Amino acid sequence: MRFHTRKWVKPEDLNPNGTLFGGRLLEWIDEEAALYAIIQLENPKTVTKYMSEIDFRSSARQGDIIEIGMDVVTFGRASLTLTCEVRNKMTRESIIVVDRIVMVSLDEEGKAKPHGKTRIEYVKDRLGD
């Protein structure tokens, strides 16, 4: 799993229990999945279609630094399926796992648009030597 993004848990991210609000964490995951898919599919019109069951394994508190990891599960005709794990940067303890996030590439009319991708591409590969 490649961990791309770090977030610092601030007071506005907390629930009444004083731990990270699940909705805030899901917002961060959805944003990270969208950014990852947009870059991979090279289409800014990429949206979330599906997010599988989520499994909260632990929590985070104010001041914790968390990191969000994404990996590609599979490339579809017009989609990209990802898996995600969020962990505490300092303790490496897993906070949440999402087995499947399906992102879909859209055309100008909002219909699924084939992307032609079959493997992960890195910016350095696109730029050449």
Score class of each variant (00 low, 15 high):
E121D: 06
F56I: 07
E121K: 02
T48E: 05
A60V: 02
I96Q: 09
K113D: 09
A60M: 06
S52L: 02
V123P: 14
L80R: 00
I68Y: 03
M70A: 08
T74D: 14
R61T: 12
V104K: 03
E85D: 14
Y122L: 15
V47G: 01
E121T: 03
R87A: 08
T48Y: 02
V72N: 08
S58Q: 04
D71V: 00
S52P: 04
M70V: 07
G63D: 08
Y122M: 10
D64N: 15
E53F: 08
D99Y: 04
K89C: 14
K49P: 02
L106Q: 07
V102L: 06
A112E: 14
S105R: 04
A78C: 03
I95Y: 12
T91M: 13
P114G: 02
E53K: 13
E109D: 12
A112G: 11
I65C: 09
G110H: 12
T46D: 05
Y122F: 15
E121P: 01
I96K: 09
T91A: 15
I66W: 11
E85L: 01
R57K: 13
T118Y: 10
K124Y: 13
R126L: 12
G69V: 08
S58D: 08
I96E: 09
S94C: 14
R61G: 13
F56V: 04
E85W: 00
K113G: 01
I101T: 01
S58W: 07
L106D: 02
T74C: 13
R126S: 10
V104F: 02
M70N: 11
F75W: 09
V123S: 08
S94R: 13
F56K: 12
D64T: 03
D99R: 03
I66Y: 12
H115A: 00
V73A: 11
S79D: 04
I101Q: 03
S58M: 02
A60S: 14
I66K: 10
T48N: 00
E85M: 03
I95C: 09
F56M: 12
Y50H: 13
L106E: 06
V86W: 08
D55Q: 13
N88P: 08
R126I: 04
S105L: 00
D107G: 08
T74L: 14
K111V: 04
T83Y: 02
E67N: 06
M103D: 05
G76D: 04
T118K: 10
M90D: 15
L106R: 07
V102N: 02
